[in-house]
Computed example of a mutant assay.
Amino acid sequence: MRKYNKNTNELEAAVCNCCGKSMKIQNGMLLEGICSVDTTWGYFSGKDLEKHEFDLCEECYDRITASFAVPPKISEDMEG
């Protein structure tokens, strides 16, 4: 989860929800990879309209996605 300064809205802390690892932050900038999930469940789920948010460090992301029956689609992001 991420924590922001209420006055400046600058990122103060980020923690992996899976393993509890504190992420490196300098001057409000995250200095390592993080997977952020932000989803709102629909009407036909058991979590109608609940919003779920969490962050994963790169190691936890790799461990979790390695167990997927269908791997995530991976492509290169071409910033333009």
Rank of each mutant, 00 (worst) to 15 (best):
M1L: 07
R2F: 14
R2Q: 11
K3Q: 12
K3P: 01
Y4A: 05
Y4W: 12
N5S: 11
N5K: 06
N5F: 01
N5L: 01
N5M: 02
K6M: 05
K6R: 11
K6N: 10
N7F: 03
T8P: 08
N9R: 08
N9K: 09
E10K: 14
E10Q: 12
E10M: 07
L11Q: 02
L11V: 05
L11E: 02
A13Q: 08
A13D: 06
A14D: 03
A14I: 05
V15H: 06
C16Q: 12
N17R: 06
C19A: 06
G20D: 02
G20M: 00
K21E: 13
K21R: 15
M23W: 06
K24H: 02
K24G: 00
N27I: 01
N27G: 10
N27S: 14
G28C: 04
M29N: 04
M29R: 04
M29H: 04
L30H: 07
L31V: 00
L31I: 00
E32G: 05
E32N: 03
G33W: 08
I34L: 12
I34S: 14
C35K: 13
C35D: 12
S36V: 10
S36T: 10
V37F: 07
V37S: 04
T39G: 03
T39H: 11
T39V: 15
W41C: 01
G42I: 00
Y43V: 03
Y43I: 02
F44T: 05
F44G: 04
F44P: 01
S45W: 02
S45E: 01
S45G: 01
G46N: 14
G46L: 09
G46E: 11
K47C: 05
D48E: 13
D48H: 09
D48W: 06
D48K: 15
L49Q: 14
E50W: 12
K51N: 12
H52W: 14
H52S: 10
H52K: 11
E53D: 07
D55Q: 08
D55N: 15
D55I: 04
L56I: 06
L56W: 11
L56F: 11
L56Y: 10
C57R: 03
C57D: 04
C57K: 02
C57V: 02
C57A: 02
E58H: 10
E58S: 10
E58L: 11
E59S: 11
E59A: 13
E59Y: 05
E59Q: 10
E59F: 04
C60I: 00
C60S: 07
Y61H: 09
Y61C: 07
R63F: 08
T65C: 15
T65N: 15
A66F: 00
A66V: 03
S67D: 04
S67F: 02
S67H: 05
S67K: 08
S67G: 01
V70Q: 14
P71T: 03
P71G: 14
P71F: 03
P72D: 07
P72Q: 04
K73W: 09
K73Q: 12
K73Y: 12
I74M: 08
I74S: 10
S75W: 00
E76T: 04
D77G: 07
D77H: 15
D77I: 07
E79L: 14
G80T: 12
G80N: 13
G80D: 15
